[in-house]
Design a binder for these strands. Structure first.
Lengths: 235, 235
DNA sequence: GGAATAGTGTCTCTGAGACAGTATAGT
DNA sequence: ACTATACTGTCTCAGAGACACTATTCC
């Protein structure tokens, strides 16, 4: 291969897939694009990485600038997308990040955050006439959801969808929304409370709802839950 | 942020962590660097991505060019490394790939492949005075091994370490080498033969070794093995 | 009391692990 | 025969799932 001046030149961007569970369903944070290409279409918050900026810092910055979501409890690199024709402006490689946040009510903007909002993931991934996204963000969303679904089995990721203190029912709601299944409340309760390091009791109880008040828990220190929760269906 | 001319300029490279099991231990394919920076040190095969080249194609090309390893049965993106100071030549982002190949004997070179060889992974990851690698390749190797160890539990990845036809003992050897544990041959045999779609019988048997000849198997179509094999220790 | 949700008890079945026992090869 | 490895049988124990039952709140 021959290049006129040294090595091929790339632009590097980050895109952040920020997920939450609201109204009992998995939702994703999207912005309406304000400029070309894909003007007016929905896309993940993201943008170009600075010359001296770390990738993860760039992801955090773009999430804050474009959506006003600050310091999600979970942020990790998802995958890098670099098809030569993925951006009409030129050769661009995008490092996608997966972020998870608890239900924080409406995404209301600072500055450019005006057009940021939460959308039901299912609308983009349904097999019949899925809603469209800019760039290759449809593929990225699929990968993000697949990883999230898998992670729930053997990591405490589900707790990062909950507020700092949550009930077992809250946690079960996260699993049910993301896996799209119904779980037996009794067995789920026993299982998660017995998985060592997964949850820690606060002593406090919930209030307000109908029925008996529930114990409030905080997430534990375990990085891995054992034995795992099993989702038999293929992920 | 302000840039004098458009967007920040990056170089994009790929690095391939190619793993195999030889002599009962996990080994990795490395090349001795022929030029600056890190001249003479060990590094993963890799290099710059072409202007119109897909990332995975670049990984495959570099692996072939530098080590003569063609078409590993497993190649998937691992993670992207982009610390601003990771390459003294300038701002470079490297997309790391994880490849798995069966034991193919010595890595003998074509062209630049002269210096390519297999090395015991343990030497680089031991806590006391680990052997050094160029760039941030030590971190990349750690991530590659962690993912591999985890994948063995619930995916058929272990079969890609074996030749197309293999015995249950071969497969067990892969788990034992990578997990660093001893597995009960009887229980392992029952477990993997009962996991649906994991293995398919060929009808043929092995020959040559001491003891009763073993059935030869080929890898099945399953993308996921259920129930998973469990590694209790933290990964 | 009735409705609703939280949480416990208990039974059954499956699978993991320990390990004895059988099968089939080389020497 | 002896050894080595492949494979099967069997026992025990832990955990998943089904579901009955108790506990505690609001109405």
């Amino acid at each position: 291969m021959v290049y006129t001046s040294g090595y091929p030149i790339f632009s590097v961007t980050v895109d952040v897939v920020c997920l939450t569970v609201r109204d009992g369903e998995l939702q994703v944070l999207l912005v309406e694009r304000g400029g070309e290409p894909f003007e007016g279409e929905l896309a993940f918050p993201g943008g170009f990485v600075g010359v001296n900026e770390d990738l993860e810092d760039a992801a955090r910055r773009e999430l804050l600038e474009e959506t006003n979501v600050d310091a999600p409890p979970f942020l990790e690199q998802l995958k890098t997308y670099g098809q030569p024709d993925r951006d009409p402006r030129g050769r661009t490689v995008s490092v996608a990040y997966l972020a998870v946040a608890p239900d924080m009510g409406d995404a209301r903007g600072g500055s450019d955050a005006a057009a940021a909002d939460w959308y039901a993931v299912a609308d983009f991934l349904r097999p019949r006439r899925p809603r469209s996204l800019a760039f290759d963000h449809h593929e990225i969303l699929r990968d993000a959801v697949r990883r999230t679904r898998g992670r729930l089995e053997y990591s405490p990721l589900a707790t990062t969808f909950c507020r700092p203190e949550f009930t077992i029912a809250d946690l079960r709601g996260v699993y049910e929304a993301i896996w799209g299944v119904r779980l037996d409340p009794a067995n789920f309760h026993r299982k998660v409370t017995k998985a060592e390091g997964f949850l820690v009791e606060t002593g406090r109880t919930s209030e307000g709802g109908p029925g008996r008040p529930a114990q409030l828990y905080r997430r534990g220190r375990a990085e891995r839950i054992y034995p795992p929760l099993n989702l038999e269906q293929s992920v």
